[in-house]
Design a protein around this nucleic acid. Structure first.
Lengths: 204, 204, 204, 204
DNA sequence: CATGAATGAGGATTCATTCAT
DNA sequence: CATGAATGAATCCTCATTCAT
């Protein structure tokens, strides 16, 4: 394992064990078994480590979204994939904490980061939308875009509940609801949306 | 306005404007128009300020939840209330930021705050559950609890998207989806849940 | 003696004893008999301490220049003053080192500082020019401006020699030359300049 | 170009462009196209690089001084040479910066460098004195030594003004004054000095 | 000869908290 | 009650130098 990987691995561990705030350079260096100075041989900034980590994580997500999208032939497989990847997110503690950390940085006024994250987020959102298109034949309407934002938001919101330890439900129970939503809830709900859109356009 | 209120008010302003990180005791004292030393006459700790602030903020939320819950007699009115209150949350920027920063504080290892949030969150969650019970005749099963967590999480998640400015949808579009969910989507989805629960218990 | 003065005094001492580079915040704090943190109660930056010091020193110079200029009636007194103040500069080790430090900062690319210093320097230069006007009836020509820059530069250059300890002459000998220059050398030299200017304009 | 030359060349470039502070071993190595470790094959110390560099730079200056001194026979030619070489110095930005940064290094406590500068400066000063002797028949008195220090200092001081961009005069105007000084001002001034010396010795 | 990873001491800065007045 | 000066530990970061490969 080379320097950068060692650092990233250590950072991930420290973050998931003690949170972003206590993930000091010294702590990461110690965990990685090197000196603080060595860290700066590989990374210019502490934030760059974090950013690399987030990038890795978001790139994964985007890659997954794109990967899922590709086997159009088999809807059932896509659904299983979506469910599986969502479930995995619940257990990626370091990544989830990191995502929160960046949100916090942005809300604290870090404009550069905001721009970076925005781009990544948009790609991600598009990935999800495409999945919905493939799965449910969704059209590219404002309401459908809103729906995919709700879905993304729901997952993020629930993950935050788990991070904060205010959600006492078993992950399995949460996932059962999610599965039911993907399998049956969404198809029906999308019909409702389409019905509404049609009514609206007829009325106009 | 007495000392504590002045401090809480100042803290709320500082945090929602500049985040928890920059909400130093000095900054709060300055905003409150007093000296740093004076703060410690009213509060033993910086943490206690945050504690009180979270208390206040959550109590507000719970009051709203309870406010909704009270008129059990009229389901349609409850629905309108839920939708109205949800919509209002989207525009309460300062409160939303505050809540995010508390989340950050908790994720940074502030255990007292976590405990407080946990208690309050439980009450809040219960409030939402009761609303669901009243609206849709929900039973007190693990899956139904999970559902209400998803609902809460979704709203929080979407609000975070707006805070981060990564959600380009109009609030109206987001709310249309939410309305449709409350009015038609959830009743149908809850039937699906119940069907699944029954199937499972029959199978056992 | 209040906080700022204590710090400025300590900084001056440390700088003249060990140079700007070794004038660390810790060293200054120690010399001032306070903790490093205390320094930041009075100054936002280490550089601000230095800047205050330079400001003090330049303001002195400017005030002196203006002060000298004012008693127009007595040329002999002005000369004695100029000589006296120049001599004093040779012994202001801390200020001289500081001036070099800022020059160095500017040459290292600190553009903000450059602007600040430029203004101060211009004021100072003007002060000197006015003295020359009063003493020798100098006219406001490019050549006369050049002359005053040479005078300023000469003093700065010689002071640097002393700082670097490459000038083995006694200060008294250096000052004798300076006195002779002020008393007799400059009047004659200025006549030469004027003669040249006139020849030039006649030739045109 | 061999190793040492490559390093010296790179160091000269880095220092004159970014100053001594940013002339880290890494930066020099990068500029020289080698690794940091390689530097230490040629030089034991970072200081030794600076030492060599100063040596080279001062040797250049001394060579110039000696070059001027050699044709004793023709005073007019010497004057033109002095003026020409002085003028050239104004345009040697990189060398001037380099020299300033060495001054800074010395003021930062680099004692070896100080010693080197002292020796070289003495030689240099002697060169100037000899020129004055040749040109104006100067005697080897303390006051005449002081005069030559003032001349050297003046040029250095004015060059620093140009480096700092606080001197708005045209170089031509500055040089006109210098020429006038060399041609007419100094002969007269030296007479004044001699007169004073004689008066003093008569008085004793 | 060359590489570049690693060290570790040292620097500036921040901030919750205390305490004499 | 109030002030604000002072503390000191913790944080990020830099860089000359060493050394295994």
């Amino acid at each position: 394992m080379n320097g950068k990987s060692k650092i990233l691995f250590a950072a991930k561990k420290v973050i998931s064990e003690h949170g972003t705030n206590r993930a000091t350079v010294r702590a990461i260096a110690e965990e990685a078994g090197m000196s603080t100075g060595a860290i700066y041989h590989y990374y210019k900034n502490k934030e760059e480590i974090f950013y690399d980590l987030l990038d890795e994580s978001l790139s994964d997500s985007i890659r997954i979204a794109k990967g899922i999208k590709n086997h159009v032939e088999n809807k059932e497989k896509i659904k299983r994939d979506v469910i599986q990847k969502t479930k995995e997110r619940f257990y990626k503690d370091a990544e989830n904490r990191l995502q929160h950390h960046f949100a916090h940085e942005i809300l604290s006024g870090n404009m550069d980061l905001k721009q970076k994250l925005k781009e990544k987020y948009k790609q991600w959102n598009l990935g999800i939308e495409e999945i919905l298109v493939n799965l449910y034949g969704l059209e590219d309407t404002p309401l459908n875009k809103a729906l995919s934002s709700w879905l993304l938001g729901a997952v993020d919101g629930v993950i935050l509940q788990y991070l904060l330890e205010v959600n006492d439900n078993k992950v399995e129970d949460m996932m059962k609801i999610f599965e039911l939503l993907i399998d049956k809830g969404l198809p029906e709900f999308i019909q409702l949306i389409n019905a509404m859109e049609n009514k609206k356009s007829q009325g106009t």
